[in-house]
Structure formats: structure tokens, C-alpha cells
């Protein structure tokens, strides 16, 4: 596969560097996945808890390679007319109306029905040609001459039928349209495909088999510190360390929804807005709704707030 800026995917280290330049701190596993996806021409299925940067990963890859990122958001009821292609019915109808006159000219002199039909056949299926085809994200991604990054977001939200629709695209980078035939990706311009899933249901084995599987867990403390540094550079080092320790402690608790990286970043920004320099129990209590999204979680943490805050303060 040859795409522009491909030298940025030459090795795992270079990938990590390129990501860093775009303020996305990635672990070795993530970089390896991108490396393999490119060199093996394979889609990557990314799983992990919400908010760890699954969607962001695909977007960043597009940014690094300076390619278009075509995004297909999945939802229940998504079907081929929304994901692959649709016929432009209006245009077809309009054209038949306009061409009515011409048709009678063409058919002039034809004797009988069978002769007319024969004459019509000479013109082929003009109304079912690519001119009347409205490409949707998947088809668009295949036909992109520059190559592109295709992001199929939250696959687990779509129906089982849709998963099966994806299979042809993912294994052979081609789509079959009955009226036209098979459309293949331009040689050496196959799209880089990323699928994300929040694990609300198990993805079928058939789909998994065709993908590389990357699981992004919550980051460890060191990585999370780096991420905060890259994303919120204006935060003081001391506060950053306290913040990260606090969040890491929270993830140990039994909560309905654990705070993810996106929440940590939001919280860091909040604390900067409030001009705070260090964590304390009151401040945490006031801003807890930034990191915890359920009232029962907030209540559960409230009791242990002092303890966790002290721990975060002590360790840094």
C-alpha cells in the first residue's frame, strides 16, 4: 500500500513520535496496531471502556497521514442504503420525464414491441449506472483516490445484519452492487480501516477474524501523566501528579462508570479555570461531577473522599 506520508508509519518508534507531535500519547501496543494495520492491510477493531481515545486514535492517524477521515457512525437500524450506496431515485425519475421525448425519437421506425425493446437494450442500463449512484461512507472510502482513513464508530450499536454487510468490505476491500458489479479499492490505495466498539455486545467471530484486535485499557499513572501533559500543558506539575493519582485511586473503586482519560482531561481544565494549585477535599467535592457521571457514584465516593485526597497529596 502506498499512501502519502507513509514514511511516518515506518516503525513503531516513528509512529509514537508522530502521535506525540499531534498530542496523542500512545502506548507501544497502540503504535504496533497502527504499524500492523498499515503493513498487513488489515482493519483494526479497537475495544475498550468509553473515553480512552478509541475514536481519537483513528482521527489522529488521519491527521498524521494528512488523509481524509471518513466516519460512519453506527446505530440501530443502519442499513446498506445509509452505509454503502443508494440510487438517486429523484434524478432517475426526472431524467425519464425529460428523456420521454427523445425516447420516442429513438424508437421511431421500430415495428412492434420486441423491436422497440431490442432498440432500448442497445442503450444499456443507463439509469442504473454510476451517474445515478449516491455513494455513502463505505463506498466513498473505497473510491477515494488519495486513500483515506475509514472510521466505523461503535460497531456494537449496529444490528447483526449490518456486521455481515461489513464482511466483504473488510476482508477484500470491495463491495458488490447488483446492478453495476463489484467495486474494488484502487490498488495500493486501500483505506486504513478502524472499527471501534464499547463492548455493549459481543462482536461476531466472523468480523473479529478479519480484523486485528486492539484492546485499549485505562492508562497507567505514568502514561496518564504524559497524556495530561500533552493535552493540558498549562497545568502545574504538582497538581497534575495529584490529579492523576486521585483518578487512578478512583478506578480501583467499584463504580458504575469509571472516569476515563477524557474525564481526567476535563477535570484538569476545570481546575485550571478555578485557579487551583493543589487538591483539597472541598475542591474535589465541588468538582466531582466533572469526573463522575452518576449520582450514586458521587455519593459512593463522597464517604471516602478525604482518604483518597490525602493519599493523592501524600504521594506527591
Amino acid at each position: 500500500m502506498i499512501i502519502k506520508n507513509q514514511e511516518k508509519l515506518a516503525s513503531v518508534e516513528i509512529i509514537q513520535e508522530s502521535f506525540k507531535a499531534k498530542h496523542y500519547i500512545c502506548s507501544v501496543q497502540i503504535a504496533t496496531a497502527v504499524f500492523l494495520a498499515y503493513h498487513l492491510d488489515k482493519p483494526v477493531l479497537i475495544e475498550g471502556p468509553p473515553g480512552v481515545g478509541k475514536t481519537e486514535l483513528a482521527k489522529t492517524v488521519a491527521e498524521i497521514l494528512d488523509l481524509k477521515c471518513i466516519r460512519l457512525q453506527c446505530y440501530e437500524g443502519l442499513d446498506e442504503s445509509k452505509a454503502i450506496y443508494e440510487w438517486k431515485y429523484g434524478k432517475q425519475l426526472l431524467y425519464t420525464q425529460v428523456l420521454k421525448e427523445t425516447l420516442s425519437d429513438i424508437l421511431e421506425g421500430a415495428k412492434g414491441l420486441s423491436e422497440s425493446v431490442k432498440k432500448l437494450h442497445e442503450f444499456g442500463d443507463i439509469f442504473f449506472s454510476e451517474d445515478f449512484l449516491e455513494p455513502r461512507p463505505l463506498l466513498k472510502a473505497l473510491k477515494d483516490e488519495q486513500g483515506c482513513v475509514l472510521l466505523i464508530d461503535e460497531v456494537d450499536r449496529s444490528d447483526h445484519e449490518f456486521e455481515s454487510l461489513l464482511l466483504e468490505m473488510l476482508s477484500d476491500f470491495q463491495l458488490s452492487i447488483p446492478e453495476i458489479g463489484t467495486i474494488k479499492a484502487i490498488e495500493n490505495r486501500k483505506p486504513l480501516v478502524f472499527l471501534t466498539s464499547n463492548n455493549t455486545r459481543e462482536i461476531s467471530d466472523a468480523l473479529k477474524r478479519r480484523c486485528l484486535h486492539l484492546y485499549i485499557p485505562f492508562p497507567d499513572a505514568t502514561l496518564e501523566r504524559q497524556i495530561i501533559q500533552a493535552r493540558v500543558p498549562e497545568i502545574a506539575e504538582k497538581l497534575r501528579n495529584q490529579l492523576v493519582t486521585f483518578i487512578q485511586e478512583l478506578r480501583e473503586l467499584d463504580l458504575k462508570k469509571l472516569p476515563a482519560i477524557s474525564e481526567t482531561i476535563d477535570w484538569a481544565r476545570t481546575l485550571i479555570l478555578l485557579n487551583s494549585e493543589t487538591l483539597d477535599a472541598d475542591l474535589v467535592r465541588q468538582t466531582l461531577n466533572v469526573i463522575l457521571k452518576f449520582q450514586e457514584d458521587i455519593e459512593a465516593v463522597d464517604a471516602e473522599l478525604q482518604g483518597i485526597t490525602n493519599k493523592a497529596l501524600k504521594e506527591n
Binding site: V12, V28, Q29, T32, A33, L36, V44, L45, E47, E202, D205, K208, R209, C211, L212, H213, L214, Y215
Partner: peptide, 16 residues
């Protein structure tokens, strides 16, 4: 070794 392990892990194992 780690690189190989990560790579094979992505290709061969498909859930946690």
C-alpha cells in the same frame, strides 16, 4: 520479543 508478542496478540487473540 515484546514487539512480536504485541503483534501476535493482536492477530490471534480477539477478546480480553
Amino acid at each position: 520479543r515484546q514487539f512480536l508478542k504485541d503483534s501476535l496478540s493482536m492477530v490471534l487473540s480477539k477478546n480480553t
